[in-house]
Design a protein around this nucleic acid. Structure first.
Lengths: 291, 291
DNA sequence: AAAAGGGTATGCAAAATTGCACAGCTGGGA
DNA sequence: TCCCAGCTGTGCAATTTTGCATACCCTTTT
């Protein structure tokens, strides 16, 4: 009776590249994976993986079914989402993902209260970068900072986001003395951005940072000037990070609350969405830079 | 770890209409089915089936995933066939289906010999009417009497088939005396066929039969005249069934040996195909009416 | 009206699957 | 070179799943 699940194991091994990693992904012991693959191979009289120096590699037979089994995974994921979308109990797990700044500043408290008032709901919050795949149900609900969400997700823009320029008093002094402006940027921006060249005669890139909190810390430490969404520096009281009085155009990026279409009717997810919407709406001025 | 297989159980119940029938289809006890469905329902917080007077009926949630899970079934079936197609062992099961006349007259002996010489191959022969679904692997190999096989099957036409008219001596006497010709036909033929109206002035339908052996028995019993493929009456020595000396055009129906494309490289199936081809080729004159 | 034949749910024992512990292997780094 | 970390395969014990037996329900038939 394991015929479909054996394919699931196969796919997991193929995707992760090792029995052990697959075992972690599926939440079972690695010996189970080993035996399931053996059984699948034995039943069909075919080797699926070849052992190489680094993990496993697919044989021809394995390759021939990889995409097919991927379709099966799509289908079962879809079915699973559809079923969960009909769940009208305030029970079960909710997987949330959001930038950790949003959680720390705005949602930690209300979500704690939500958790207390719904003891049968288990919140599972992921704030690590690597985007959760909502289609795979790695997350049920996502708060994201993005210009436009992917079209298979539904949800709403909680607010647009105002950006501003921030620097430490020392850096501002330097700028006023006409020194070249040291910039703190997000990675992979290789040219001087227009918000810098339009407002300053001279600027150079001092540092790249890939995290908002760390960018704030860098500015606070005096590394240089950065363009940040207002909500973070304006919420974290900190005399070393000063907002410059240079208005920037409103960004088309926004704060979105997203979930998969299939899950829209799930009671627990609607409840959680409402809490998030409710509490975030208090902070609209912060996001629009009017705090 | 039962997530994919639970969907398999769901689909089987939905298709068969009852837990018990599903249990028979999947080869497990019905209590297993009951518990699997319960677990799927509980895990997603949704009822999938509603009890009615006759078996189960799908709920809205159940309907919403039915076709999706069907896609998963397609995919896993496909994968399973592809894997079996790579099997180069002369071991395992071969599911054969063919009209019982073909088995009884021509293939019982050679297949028995094949079975003896390959003790690790288990032959599973289905001669019951209801067509086996090769896509679902209800059959690996099929001998069929058909004008043109479905395009997802590969195989070859072993031979065309000559038909002729047969009747008992008494019926022939009656015809010669100018009596109306009693016809024995396949079901759902409501008009007098041209092979009758072209050759006889007067004919009427005496009986419908849906099986070749039974049609032969009916002719033997003197019910009337029938058009049959020559191979059967010409192989079964029987003085009460006489072939009329009226030539009919060669039918475009033929005897086909078919299998699914995905299985074309399976060693055991190739071996079995060869035996069948080899032995059937001895009987070409019988099929062409020249015995 | 009762019995028979079809279905499902559940306690309990049997069987199958799983996890654990250990052994053996390989590659990378001190 | 040796050690360490991480991986896989396997015997054995523990857990989970299954089958069996039974109870029960409903419909149809006698």
């Amino acid at each position: 009776m394991h015929s479909w699940d054996d394919f699931r194991v196969f796919l997991s091994v193929a995707e992760t590249g090792s029995f052990s990693a697959s075992a972690r992904e599926l939440g079972v012991n690695h010996s189970t994976i080993s035996r399931r693959v053996q059984s699948l191979e034995k039943r069909h009289g075919v080797k699926l993986f070849e052992r190489t120096q680094k993990g496993y590699r697919l044989t021809v037979a394995g390759q021939s079914i990889l995409s097919i089994v991927g379709q099966a995974k799509e289908a079962t994921n879809h079915a699973s989402r559809l079923l969960s979308g009909h769940d009208d109990r305030l029970e079960g797990e909710i997987k949330l993902t959001m930038p950790h700044e949003i959680f720390d500043l705005f949602l930690a408290k209300p979500l704690a209260a939500f958790s207390l008032s719904h003891p049968k709901i288990q919140l599972n919050i992921g704030v690590k970068p690597g985007l959760k795949n909502i289609a795979n149900r790695e997350a049920d609900l996502a708060v994201r900072i993005t210009p436009e969400p992917p079209e298979y997700l539904i949800g709403k823009r909680i607010t647009y986001m105002q950006h501003a320029l921030y620097a430490s008093p020392q850096v501002i002094n330097g700028i006023e003395r006409g020194e070249s402006v040291p910039l703190v940027l997000w990675p992979n921006i290789h040219a001087i951005p227009s918000w810098a060249s339009d407002n300053f005669g001279n600027a150079h890139i001092a540092m790249y940072v890939d995290d908002l909190t760390s960018m704030h810390k860098a500015v606070k430490a005096g590394v240089g000037l950065a363009r940040m969404p207002c909500f973070y520096p304006d919420s974290v009281i900190c005399p070393e990070v000063v907002k410059l009085d240079i208005p920037l155009p409103l960004s088309d990026w926004g704060l979105w609350l997203l979930n998969h279409v299939d899950l829209r009717n799930s009671a627990r997810i609607r409840a959680c969405k409402q809490i998030i919407t409710e509490h975030m709406s208090q902070y609209l001025p912060v996001f629009l830079g009017n705090a």
